[in-house]
Write a protein that binds this DNA or RNA. Structure first.
Lengths: 342, 342
DNA sequence: GTATTTACTGGAACCGGTTCCAAAAATGCC
DNA sequence: GGCATTTTTGGAACCGGTTCCAGTAAATAC
């Protein structure tokens, strides 16, 4: 079915040489208008489309595709970045090849396969940090790589100031008068090496220390990401002898679980207890959730822009910097002063 | 940087012919073990990786990529399908190339470009219906296409029983005693030709007619998809002389806008007014929203499976059927009997 | 009218693999 | 040891483009 004509068929049919047909295909000025028309007519007639594979082989051209490795691309925080990446790539001639990662094994698999298979010209990794061996592997294959929301000493990256996010949240709660602030997060030693929960915790810890507030280990709960686990962790927190007056969840999804648990326990938010999330996902507005807005879309866009620079000026030594993007606290209706102070 | 060695370098270095190297690369049994080891050693030494482009050119192999055209891939309903598609493709040797569509122009652009560029071997279109000319174009290029949540007489498709979803919602509300049921949807004549809102409306209309309830045009509001527009449309509905006692929103996102508006107007859900959504997105559980669960993930999986069959048995005339998948009403806490009956 | 450009054109060589065919080497058999 | 097989091997031809170089024809120069 696929048109089996080659450039030689076109040449024969048009009574010209293959070089001439190639020149017409590539809009070379070295063809007379008459010949060009003749050739174009034959191309039209045969509905001829040149083989991109052959073309790439002889020109050494790349595949015009950029790969994106993203973990759990259905989670809002990742969808947001992906959206930015997509929008930026759509403006170029590149295609976007999506590699979704659900297990650490898959991650390693992709890092292994991708440079070898040569199906993409460049790679963006979201929230994942490659090992030194993998980075070496990328370099040897000549594959430009940019990290978004992760970092590595030998790679360009677009990071987000998670530590500052943790600081801002904690400071906000402190300003309201809270001192018993709990933190619910993903496992710090998660198999993907996600760093953001840890960074946010560092910000939280730093602010507490600066204000001479003791960090209580029992106020820090870790668990799998998700609403249900956060729900359970919240119950555990509230059953403590001295329960917190504010809960900082390391994602909005987890904050949902927190609020659900509190509601079921008959506690009112924010009157009885304050809740802060992180990510500013779409429903956060709807729920009036106080949260941290991080420039997810923008981080994706900048990741692609950095990558394009790498691709275009591969040799040129334009000084490429790694960025850290700022975050901003969005105060809505789930935080207020703690009950005692009222 | 990219390894510049060719199969000829390997052959020379190993003191064998190019054919032999090729045989080793392809695990042909026609090589003696001794030679194989010798060649493998050289390959290892040079860190040689054969060019996939050259390979494809000489074998006529395909590109091992499946394209997905999806509109607004960040909307929950589309993410769900995309997730199913991704999961199913991940199990194969194919890569997933994502084409996101935000304007009708982009849609046409992709349909035009894709068969010509030969970058993918097969195509899945989600919720979009190609024109006859485009289908013709696909066929000529020998590009297998499967539609998910859309249909076309000449293409395989996985549909979802939207009309039945509309019926089930309406019947549920009727059973509760509602007769003044409004419907908030996307524009029927949207530029993408999305059909689902229309089908759901048909179900709604059919049930009303079967129960001899007059269809009131003023109870049907159309607008751009999104929370805000739904919010506004809800206000319009409630300002009618005889406002509805139940609102059926054609998506959960819109239902969110509906509930937000009702809340702001001081109306309680479901005591004062019932609300039903559609899609069963993640927050629907959290909000206790009565909605329709559609097998989004599964529809994506089945789309890929159908496509793989098309790819594998391209000639074999195994009878491929188009499916329609069922939906199910999930009753939660946003629906109850209308106030007058209480 | 001849010499020199200039404007096009044809086609061989090449990109880096695969495949096929003929030849070489190894093996089997008497 | 000699002949028939069988196993292994080298390399030319090919996939379908691009590119470069040499050649022809027309245009310009003198």
């Amino acid at each position: 079915m696929r048109s089996a004509y080659t450039i030689r068929d076109v040449a024969r049919r048009a009574g010209v040489g293959v070089g001439t047909v190639s020149r017409v295909l590539n809009d070379s000025p070295l063809v007379s208008e008459a010949t060009r028309q003749k050739v174009l007519a034959v191309i039209e007639e045969l509905d001829f489309h040149p083989s991109q594979v052959a073309r790439r082989l002889s020109t050494g051209e790349r595949s015009l595709a950029i790969g994106i490795i993203v973990p759990f691309f259905t989670r809002p925080a990742f969808v947001g970045r992906l959206q930015g990446v997509e929008a930026a790539i759509a403006q170029t001639e590149y295609d976007l090849v999506l590699y979704n990662v659900e297990t650490p094994g898959q991650r390693d698999d992709f890092c292994q396969r991708i440079p070898i298979e040569q199906r993409i010209d460049a790679l963006i990794m979201i929230s994942l940090r490659p090992s030194n061996r993998e980075v070496e592997h990328f370099k040897r294959a000549g594959l430009p790589v940019v990290l978004v929301d992760a970092s590595h000493p030998d790679l360009m990256s677009i990071e987000i100031d998670d530590m500052d996010g943790g600081r801002q949240v904690t400071q906000h709660l402190l300003d309201l008068g809270h001192t018993k602030i709990a933190y619910i997060s993903d496992h710090f030693d998660n198999p993907f090496g996600f760093q953001s929960s840890i960074q946010r915790f560092r910000g939280y810890k730093a602010v507490l220390e600066e204000n001479n507030i003791r960090l209580r280990p029992e106020y820090h709960k870790q668990g799998e990401h998700g609403r249900h686990v956060a729900h359970r962790l919240t119950q555990e927190l509230m059953e403590l002898d001295d329960p917190p007056t504010a809960i900082f969840a390391s994602s909005d999804t987890q904050a949902l679980g927190v609020m659900e648990a509190l509601q079921q326990m008959g506690l009112r938010v924010p009157e009885d207890i304050s809740v802060v999330g992180y990510d500013d996902i779409e429903v956060a507005v709807y729920l009036g959730l106080t949260t941290v807005h991080q420039p997810m879309y923008q981080s994706g866009v900048e990741g692609v822009q950095t990558l394009l620079q790498l691709l275009n000026e591969e040799n040129s030594n334009a000084p490429l910097a790694s960025y850290t993007l700022p975050v901003s606290l969005i105060v809505r209706e789930t935080t207020t002063s703690p009950p005692e102070r009222k």
